[in-house]
Design a protein around this nucleic acid. Sequence first.
DNA 1: ATGGCCTCGGTTCGAGGA
Length: 254
Amino acid sequence: MKLATWNVNSLRVRLEQVLAWSAEARPSVLALQETKMADDVFPTEALSEAGWQVEFAGQAAYNGVAVMADSPLERLADALPGFDDAQQRLLAVKVRDLVLVNVYVPNGQAVGADKYAYKLDWLKALEAYLKNLLQEHDRIAVVGDFNIAPEDRDVHDPVAWEGSVLVSEQERAAFRALCGLGLVDSFRLFEQPEQSYSWWDYRQAAFRRNRGLRIDHILMSPALAKRCKGVHIDAGPRAWPRPSDHTPVVAELD
DNA sequence: ATGGCCTCGGTTCGAGGA
């Protein structure tokens, strides 16, 4: 089975691309971020006509997460427990024989900004939530847009980016703390092309010049990682007309 | 280079993203 994640930067704008890509790639589970739409306008009908079961937790204009799958979905959580958050950034479901936690981690805007503090607080609450979840379940995948490039090799120009938001040491430490719970960055379980990225700025012809960051991730608990046969970034949709600035990341599991 | 580009809400531009 395939497990995929994609920040679509507006599901309203990208619905046809999501339908096209999912029909071609045939993931069993696809986690979406930045759907940017309220639940009452979510395109349930178009997706179910294409054979997908869906769960979603959205809001107008910003944020919003959703999961589509070829199998029944059971919602476990649509917010971080104990964290007062007006923004829809998390959706945890049971699907097939695993627990999927779909996250849209805050961007942080700039190191030291209020939004940066919110990002770090959010990541702390995520860590606490996942610590508990790992005590209850063996097979867990934590996927989505983490807005963190874990290492310099995940950054096209580490010198230019040094210390800035998405790569700062505090953000990277928060990412490592998640790995410290036993979760593994599944992409790095396998040999990968150098300069592999999942996001490219819309400006400066960044995609054509491959000036990107790897900030979209699929973390796996040990039991799930054992079943992982490969992970790749599918940069195809980033080259389509009117693309999202992110592209799908795909894991293959036994 | 103080930016460049894209999406949204709601107007004819500002906020937010990364």
